[in-house]
């Protein structure tokens, strides 16, 4: 069983450049670089996957899939389109979402029931993580979203739900959830000052 603990030192200010370099070396079959990439990103990858899939054992499986994928396909990383870290977390998110969707298809789980279960887990975020400066910066950026945008982004990113499912959960018109997700992400992007490549 895993449990929530403090987040070890995340990427340093030069973390993005370091991750880019490590990915390039991975593409050249450098296992040492891969180990460094793991140490640099694993807490955020595992934490993200665990938030989405919930079950710790499954989260470990998915995390393994993610790193295998990163290793195999490191040569596909295109620094003109994204930062190395965003590429890593995009792959991790997609894998995690694929896992919960497959599970949903398998057991036809009731969406509303799953939602209540997940809500509880959302509140158990590590205190230590919240104390970190970078996390505070993200929280501050999230404050620029309206509460309804924040909810929609949270359900999409950490809940792994589709915009149609989110519309049903929040009892809002079908087209509204996708608009809230997009508008919310745009505000988040602008508040964080991140740019596409």
């Amino acid at each position: 069983m895993s449990h929530l603990t403090s987040v070890p030192s995340g990427p340093e200010p030069e973390g993005t450049d370091l991750a880019t370099e490590l990915l390039r070396r991975c593409a050249r079959d450098d296992e040492n670089a891969f180990a460094q990439l793991y140490d640099l990103t694993a807490p955020r990858v595992f934490g993200l996957v665990r938030r989405v899939v919930r079950d710790p054992a499954q989260a470990e499986e998915v995390t393994q899939e993610v790193y295998l994928d990163l290793w195999r396909h490191a040569s596909r990383f295109d620094s003109r389109r994204s930062s190395a870290l965003a590429w890593v977390f995009t792959i991790a998110h997609r894998r995690a979402v694929d896992r919960v969707r497959a599970a949903e298809a398998a057991d036809q789980r009731d969406v509303a029931y799953g939602y209540r279960q997940r809500e509880v887990a959302h509140d158990t975020t590590s205190e230590a993580a919240q104390d970190r400066w970078e996390a505070r910066r993200v929280r501050a950026a999230l404050e620029t979203l309206t509460p309804t945008q924040r909810k929609a982004v949270d359900l999409a990113y950490f809940g792994g739900y589709t915009h149609s499912e989110i519309a049903a959960m929040l009892d809002i018109p079908l087209g509204t959830a996708k608009t809230r997700i997009r508008d919310g992400l745009i505000r988040l992007r602008d508040a964080l000052g991140v740019e596409g490549s």
Partner: peptide
């Protein structure tokens, strides 16, 4: 960047 809110030691 949202992953900064979800960090968890594997």
């Amino acid at each position: 960047e949202l992953t900064l809110l979800a960090g968890e030691e594997p």
